[in-house]
Every structure is written in C-alpha cells, then in structure tokens.
Design a protein around this nucleic acid. Structure first.
Lengths: 350, 350
DNA sequence: CAAACTCTCGGAAACGTTTACAGCAATGGG
DNA sequence: CCCATTGCTGTAAACGTTTCCGAGAGTTTG
C-alpha cells in the first residue's frame, strides 16, 4: 500500500514511477525512453512493454510545470458568432493544431475590462501565447500589452511603434475600393452604415469613406450616414432609419452582418437591389454568398490574417528576441450580384 | 545569485518564495495568506504588501499539479462555423466562465478518428471535463467514453443505457412538427433535404420524416428525398437536384444551413416561397431570421442544451458519484414567413 | 596497456504550488 | 498554578514530470 502510493498517481492512474518499477529501471531511464531520447535496446523494450501494459499516459500538467510550456494558445475575439471571426478562428485552429498545440477561445464581448483582465490573467501562465483582436484600443490595453508576461499578437490597428507583433489590414483602403466601384457604376448618393465610431475599425472606415467621397469630388450628405453595432439587427435598424430620411442609390456597410441587415431592410421597404440601391458589404464572409441577391463585399482576408497571426505567435514563442513585426494585408473587392457588374449593368432579374 | 535562483522563477518572475522572503515569513505562511486561509493580522499585512510590491501572480500550472484541477473545460463540435454550434458554444462559455473556468474549443470536422483521439488525449489531464457533440457514434466512441479518465457530457443521441451524462433532443419529433405544420396547411408533396444518413441526426430525421408522412397517410415519393452534408452549399446543390426531377409543394430541411441553401435554390429556380413551395428549416439559428423570406424552423434549443450540458458537467466534476443523467429537450416549431401561417395563407408579398 | 571517449544508467534536484504535521506561544478554565 | 485548547508558524512532503550530474562499463586510440 505504502509502496503503491509511491507508484500510482493519487487517482490510481499509472505514473512514470509505475512504469519504471514494472520495467525494473529508474524513473530517469523510463522518462528517457518515453521521450525517445537515449536508452539501450533492452531498456527501451522493457519500458515500452511496461508502459503499454499499464496504459501509461504522461500528465500534461506535470510536464508543463517542468518544461515551462503549456502547449496552449489563447484566442480572444469580441464575438464568436460573427462569421468573420469564425473564419479567423478556423485558420488559427488549423495552424495551432498542426503545431501540436491546443486553442483556447475567449469571448470578450468587446468589453475593455474583459480584455485587460484577460491580459492580466496571462500572468498565470496557463497558456503560451495570445492572439487578441480588440475592437477598441485604450491606454490600458497598451500598458497591459507592454508588460504582458507571454507573447501576444494583435490582429487589428495598433498605434505606430507599439512594440507588439501585429497583423492588420487597411480597412480605410477597403472602403475606398467599395466607393470607387460604386462611383464607377454611376452611383452618387452613396450611404454608409457603420459600426460604432469609438471603435478602431469604425473610426477607420468612417475616415476612409469620407476620404473616398472627397477624392471623387462628391459632397458628403450627412443624412446618408448611419451608425449601429457591428450586428445584423443593428444594421437592419440603422438602414431603416436611414431610408426613412434619405434616398441613397448605393449603400456601403462596415461589415457583412450589417450588410445583410441592410439588404433585409432594403428589400422589405420595396427597393430593388442593385437596381434601385446597390449594396457592398465588408469582410467577404460566407454570408455574402448565402443571401439573395448574393452580396458584393470587400474582403479583408480574415483567413489569411488569422493564419499569419498564428504563425507569428508560434515564431515568437520559439524565439522571443525577434523584433516586433507588422504585417499588412491588402483588401480586395469581390463583386457579386448586389452591385452593378463592372460594365455598369445590374443583373436582369433584380 | 544562488540565493536569487531560489526565490525567483526561472524566467525572473516572482514566486511564492519571493514573496515569503520579502515578507520575512515561510512559504507556507505566504501561501496561506495568499489563499485567504489563516495568518495573523501582522503576517497578512506583510505578505500582502510583499506580494503587491513584487507583483506576484500564482502560477496556474503549479497550482493545477498540486490541486489536481486545471480549471479548464473542453468543448468538441464538428464545425465551429455552424450557427447552431455557435449558439451552443455561447451558452456553454457563459456557464463555464461564471464558474471561473476557461473553455477550450476543438473542431473535430466530424472525423471519428479525431474524436476518439481527443477522448484518448483526455488522459493527459489537461482539462477537467469535456462536452462532446458527436455527429456519428461508433463502437469506438462508446469504449473510449466508458473509460474516459475525466467526466464527459455528450450532447446528442446515445444508445440506451450508456452510462454517460447526456443532453439530447427528440429531432424525430422535431421533423414531425414540421410535417404536421405543412400538412395542416394543405401541402402534400413534401420533400426532405437531409444530412448524411450514416450520422445519428441524419438517421433520426429520416426516420422521423417517414413516420410523420405515414401517420398522415401520405405515401412517400422517394424522388422527394435528397441527401448532402449539413452545409449551405450541399443543401443548395441537393435541392437543385431534387427540383430537377420532382415538383414538391413544401420542403423540410435537416438544419438551417441546408435550408438556406434550399431557399437560395428555390428562388433562383423561380419558385415562390412559400407560395409555390413552403420551407421549414431546423435548429432555429440566427440565420433563420436573416434571410428573406424569413424562415420557419424547428427549434431544438441549442442554447438550452448547451447550458444544461455545461451545468451537468460542472456538477459531475464536483461529485463523480452522481448517477448518469439523461435530459431531453422538447423541440418546438417557430413559424416565420417561409411557410404558411396557421390559417393556411401565405404572406401576400411572397 | 593506459588514457580518453562514448553509452547507459540511477540518484537527486528542479519546476511552483498546497498542505499535513509538529512545535510553540498565548489564552482560558479548573 | 497547571493543563488543555486555540491559533500561528515553519519544515518538509507531495503533485508527476524532466534533466543535470556523476558513476560505471565498454570501446577506441595512441
């Protein structure tokens, strides 16, 4: 009994001690064999046999404590229901899994308190690194990022010279792509349904929209601007408000969820899309091709951003002396049926 | 230097030794104070001060090793992009987070190999419990479940008498609800677009559909049956095939993704919904109210299933002697615009 | 044939916690 | 005034690994 206590873990499962005793070798030898480093043929045989007989599985926690690695990566996004984050998550999970690690998912709800709390919790070292995609960036974030005890990669805009690995996209240029496309098709009364202006993407897209109109010499009509959350329901409501006071001939939306809401509002109000009002979303999520008419959308390549972010993180975990890197992904426009084709014609059935 | 090595962790961060030394007490006393158990007022003051000064944060891994608890829960679903799993995940994450734990997400892709590998990996004890929502159940699953080293809760059908906590829904009855609804509205040529028949939900829904038709004395026309993956694209393709050879006046779909695909195929083919063909999806995801016309759908209450599964798991973690529990959630029909209202009339504009 | 290497092995320390146990002082009751 | 109780404290063991180090055996080299 006393002897057994020394060999089995507290819940009766075999430990390296069990295996070693059964094979008649020391735990050091057993451990070496089990990790495939060293051991004479005879020892290897005995240890492997013993391990198989008792069904030994190493304890990940104990291993982590010793190796100072958890084999876990955390991902924190605002809303795991947004298809753009789903795409990102899929890409990240693929990279993470292929490196033999696991992915932890946190939903922050966009709350700053949640995010900084999460950053602080990293000090517990339950994870080897974090991929964070914040929707707002505060001074608190920057401080917390600066003395984060584990590597963090941020997906999204960060102030210049923040010494943090960073994957971003130029959503300002993305909005410009949408506007250019619509102007080229002869639309002039272009509306914009945005997310909250106090978010980083919201502010960038607002600036992008204004700049693009200015570049085309179109005067901005403030009645064509609306703001809501980055959600379907908010997009639908915002569009309804906008339509109640103005007559756009095109609508740009700050993401696809908003755009689907806008599409719904437009069709319910009896507008033809793209005949009366052309529509361009943003993020190019799966949603864009699910709806009818299928939606043009500016792709910010969430999959690619996720993949790169994961790779950057793994690289930094392996070598913390790397200089901070900043990767920018260029947006591109995917034209579908909700906006006029390049030759200016709308599909006949719409 | 030698002294320092004893007080700080290998990467220079403070440990309980650091705090203890700084406060001039033993590590035992320090640990006790930090855990809020015992300590004289003076000791408490000194330790708290020392901890604050050095910015001490306990190491979660070391704590886990000692306490035999990781504070982590894993969730494994087929496809994190399916909105039904998103809803489930949201509910689970809420429960898990409010118990102070964290959620790990695994995407299995429905691969049996992945799932059994995952079950085996539980032996590494990196997590306190698992919520598994398998789409297929094999003998391998049952064996792996039987000797899982940590508690597992399964969401989905399980053979009777499997001694595993289980949250399920009666999707067979769910399909019946849809069929009853359509028959009551006078539809007779009811088609069914299902997922793979070798999956548990696929088989159940197939059986449910056949039984429901039989109950109404409607002879089954095999040409009105189609099968694909539980995905949007597959649903769209399957519906296209079905429409090429038959003229249904209603369509039941095995989930909302398939249903949105079917809706797309129907509208593109020029059918009016629900005028020519009524449509009922299943799962009642957010998607259902995003599309136009908004989709009737049989709710299997994924949110509730997720919430309950998480609670069952937490209970079992706290008390492994509990008898296996099986909770069944009743489905209910949510009628929207894609199927006739109870009085048999379709909305005028469709 | 001695010296220098190369392998393999086991003991023991380490990773950073929590906690059983025993010692000790102070307190209260008889 | 003594003893039992209470409340703190520190020492040391434990959680289950990996790995450093020194010892011994066998092999090569000069």
């Amino acid at each position: 009994m006393g002897r057994k206590r020394l060999q089995e873990s507290v819940d009766g499962r075999p430990t390296v001690h069990t295996v070693a005793a059964r094979a008649g070798v020391s735990i050091a030898s057993a451990s070496r064999v089990l990790n495939g480093v060293g051991g004479s043929p005879e020892t290897i045989r005995k240890v492997r046999a013993a391990a198989a007989e008792v069904g030994y599985v190493p304890n990940a926690i104990a291993r982590s404590l010793q190796s100072q690695r958890t084999g876990q990566i955390a991902l924190a996004v605002e809303d795991i229901g947004n298809p753009v984050y789903v795409a990102m998550m899929r890409a990240i999970e693929a990279v993470v899994a292929s490196s033999g690690r696991q992915l932890l998912v946190h939903a922050t709800g966009g709350q700053i308190a949640n995010e900084t709390a999460l950053l602080r919790r990293l000090a517990h070292r339950y994870v080897d690194g974090l991929i964070l995609s914040p929707i707002r960036i505060t001074e608190e974030h920057l401080v917390a990022l600066a003395d984060s005890p584990v590597p963090v990669v941020v997906i999204g805009q960060l102030p210049p010279d923040t010494p943090v690995d960073n994957v971003r996209t130029d959503s300002q240029a993305g909005v410009a792509l949408a506007v250019d496309h619509l102007v080229a098709a002869g639309r002039r009364r272009i509306g914009f349904v945005n997310g909250p202006l106090d978010t980083v993407p919201g502010a960038a897209r607002d600036a992008g929209f204004r700049a693009a109109l200015a570049r085309h010499g179109i005067e901005l009509d403030e009645r064509l601007l609306e703001v809501g959350d980055f959600q379907y329901a908010a997009g639908r409501a915002a569009t309804k408000r906008l339509l109640a006071r103005a007559r756009p001939d095109a609508l740009v939306c700050a993401n696809d969820l908003i755009a689907v809401g806008a599409l719904h509002a437009l069709l319910v109000a009896g507008h033809r899309v793209p005949g009366d009002v052309a529509l361009v979303g943003m993020d190019d999520t799966e949603l864009a091709s699910m709806v009818l008419p299928s939606m043009s959308s500016v792709s910010l390549d969430a999959t690619e951003r996720g993949r790169i972010a994961a790779q950057l993180l793994l690289e930094r975990i392996d070598d913390s002396s790397l200089p901070p890197r900043r990767i920018t992904i260029a947006p591109h426009l995917v034209v579908r049926d909700s906006s006029p084709t390049p030759d200016g014609r709308a599909k006949q059935w719409a």
